[in-house]
Nucleic acid binder design. Structure first.
Lengths: 214, 214
DNA sequence: TCTCGTTTTAAACGTATGTTTGAAACAGTT
DNA sequence: AACTGTTTCAAACATACGTTTAAAACGAGA
């Protein structure tokens, strides 16, 4: 059982430290110290730092995407040709995501921060890895969203989907500091599930906005 | 004139490299090589790498914020107590931003990517610098947005502002690769000004969404 | 032309990083 | 109890980084 514990400790420490400081700013010594294991353990169990980064993503993303794929299949079966409703699709996605951070809801924020880093930080190997590994499920989801928004032009839909993605990743990845700000400014904090609840009407309304500004 | 050229070359190279790879992944040797100057020039002219990072932000942000401040003053004078219109405020912000990348519109994308990095990447010194230096103009803008959306609760407005910020930063910072994707998927690319045009109705509609999802 | 403050240069410094190594500790099997 | 494959460990390795240094090159004013 020693191996399992070491591997898991490393993944836990890496996940947290990466999300706090980024990939390049987090050294293997930081990680192994926090995990309470020897420095060489990372290269022994994962092979390299790059492979460790990918493993951190895979541990979260693989169960999430499997779960999502299953849910999407169920939706498609239930529809039998009818068009899906957009808010339902968004809620299904968010609920699946919240479920994926099964330990604590905080983990979703941590992972969103990682996802943001994956796109902003260099790490070309990571983008390629994520694309190859988890691209298909995303395509399926996109197909359903397309069916749910038949009145949108392909162009508007394309851009608005990315506007939604940006709002989500940015907000949830900064959820910790943002709820702290909210608590300070408004005297009212929120947990991440409440933020998601606030996000959904915003996204749904933005996606269905009229083509031109009023 | 030698100093001016060296300083400007360094800033140009740093701006581009930082936006491509992030701060920690870009070495001073990368920067000075690309700029065609000696390695020591950065420490001579800027003092440290941290100071160079701040200088890159200041070169873009100082003219932009001065311009924005001026524009906001004009709006407030013209209003004389009446409530401002939200789409107008958003367009004013985006037009000012587009104007700030006066050399090429591509520069706005580069800078948005830097702004995203500033928030995701560790760099506590940067957040503090930006807050101290450019916080007040942001507060002024926020006051006008608050006046333009009297029907929103403080809580909803707070969160939706950050949803908007996220959609904007994320999309514009990835504008290069996103327009490439759009070209590939739809056979129709866009420049950054067109993306901004598409963004505004999305944001305005999201901000004014009903409180609960339908 | 000489001078003095500024700028550039090549080289070195100290430190931190990812990775490798070879021996020690361990756990399960015969 | 002895053997075997796996895992841990302390130490070292090579490399890359930001920064410093001291000398050289430069440019404008006397």
């Amino acid at each position: 059982m020693a191996q399992k514990d070491t591997v898991k400790s490393i993944l836990n420490a890496a996940e947290e430290l990466f999300s706090e400081r980024g990939f390049a700013e987090t050294s293997l010594r930081n990680i192994t110290t926090k995990a309470g294991v020897n420095l060489a353990a990372v290269n022994y169990h994962f092979g390299s730092k790059k492979a460790l980064i990918q493993a951190v993503f895979a541990r979260f993303l693989t169960p999430f995407c499997d779960d999502l794929e299953h849910e999407l299949d169920a939706v498609q079966a239930q529809l039998e040709g009818r068009v899906p409703a957009l808010p339902g699709l968004l809620m299904l996605l968010s609920q699946t995501a919240l479920r994926a951070g099964h330990d604590s809801p905080r983990r979703l924020g941590i992972f969103m921060r990682l996802l943001g880093l994956a796109y902003t930080q260099g790490q070309g190997h990571l983008r390629r890895f994520l694309q190859k590994e988890y691209g298909p499920v995303f395509k399926t989801f996109m197909r359903l969203v397309t069916a749910a928004t038949p009145e949108l032009s392909d162009e508007d839909r394309f851009w608005r989907i990315h506007f939604m993605l940006g709002a989500t990743v940015f907000t949830l990845s900064g959820a910790d500091s943002l709820t702290a700000m909210a608590e300070h400014d408004l005297g009212k904090g929120s947990d991440i599930a409440q933020v998601v609840d606030k996000l959904i009407p915003f996204l749904a309304s933005g996606l269905n906005a009229p083509h031109q500004a009023d």
